[in-house]
Computed example of a mutant assay.
Amino acid sequence: MKIIVDAMGGDYAPQEIIEGAILAKDELNIDIVLVGKENIIKEYLNKRVNDFEIVNADEVVTMYDKPILSFRKKKNSSINISLNLLKQEKGDAFVSCGNTGAILTASYFILQKISGVNRPTQSAIIPTLKGLMVLVDSGANIDANPTNIVEWATMAKIFIKLFTKKEKIQIGLLNIGEEEEKGSELTKESYKLLKDKFKDEFKGNMEGKDFLYGDYDVCVTDGFTGNVALKTLEGEATFFLNLIKNIFKKNLLTKISYLFIKNELINNLKKFDYEEYGGSPILGVNGIVIVGHGRSKRKSVKNAIKIASKSVDIDLLNNLKFEKY
């Protein structure tokens, strides 16, 4: 297996991306192609330079570049070159922690869509008390119609079922209330279509408060709502993690009490650490593309590569292709 990694994408690139790639290679024993400025990559790899294939890319897409302009004007960017390598089957999957919009745009034009898919969607893996849930759309498509909603739910169901090996998948439509008649015209019409297609797998409307309890495996919504929900969750997770840390640092008694619950606390908090999952796939493009968080460090990068590797192992792309949309 060979995973293509954008060495120049992310707030802490290239050092943390390269360090993450080293960790992934050592743990997974897979081939990794690092794409970016060759001299810089070699400098950071140091003694490990012969363990990786390096493909030079002279240009870098920044977080401030506009997606369509970066695709058209930076033809030799690490994102464009990586996706062309994937298209040419010189790798099995692509991982980047760079500009999400640029990755989505380039994936759309270079890899193109899976036959029958109207709009690819960016997923987000969300940890819950009972396992994992996948959110679609998490920001790729600000506007949506009911047909898009059903399509995204279909692809998300395929992904999470393969990924978790669960027999029955529970799908929820993000809304402002549980009642069928609640919400906008989009949610009302989507509710009918989801109910018709998925039957008892569609649990109906879900609210923001339902995200972390684990009663749903798929949460589907438009990209605007999904992105707001995702960023709210990320902010809350960071807030409560810092709150807990400050509580145990308060005085000698709290520091001592921490020692008694340290292991259990760490194990539970790890479930809600985005670095444990690293990245999530774009569903609907003709290739496995994993988008990591922009602020990813080595641990998160390693785990994003693990997500890519597992997506290849479960034959995600072909399973998505076999579905009728």
Rank of each mutant, 00 (worst) to 15 (best):
G10S: 08
I17K: 05
A21T: 11
I22P: 00
K25D: 02
K42Q: 14
K42W: 07
K42N: 13
D51E: 15
V55H: 05
E59N: 09
T62G: 06
Y64L: 11
S77P: 05
I79H: 03
L86T: 04
Q88L: 12
K90C: 01
K90M: 10
A93C: 07
V95Q: 07
C97H: 03
N99E: 05
L104R: 00
L104P: 00
Y108I: 03
L111P: 03
L111N: 03
K113M: 08
P120T: 10
T121C: 12
T121H: 05
I125E: 01
S138T: 07
G139H: 00
I142E: 10
I142D: 04
I149V: 15
E151H: 09
T154Y: 05
T154P: 00
T154G: 03
K157S: 15
K157Y: 07
I160V: 11
I160T: 10
G172R: 11
G172M: 15
L173H: 11
L173F: 13
L174P: 06
L174H: 13
I176P: 03
S190G: 12
D210K: 12
Y213R: 14
V220W: 10
D222K: 10
V228R: 07
V228C: 10
G235N: 14
E236N: 12
T238M: 14
F239R: 13
I244T: 15
K250I: 01
L253Y: 08
I256G: 00
L259D: 04
L259A: 11
F260C: 05
F260T: 09
F260K: 12
N268C: 02
D273N: 15
Y277N: 04
G278V: 04
P281A: 08
I288G: 02
H293M: 08
R295N: 13
K299C: 00
K306D: 01
I307R: 09
A308F: 05
V312C: 05
N319L: 02
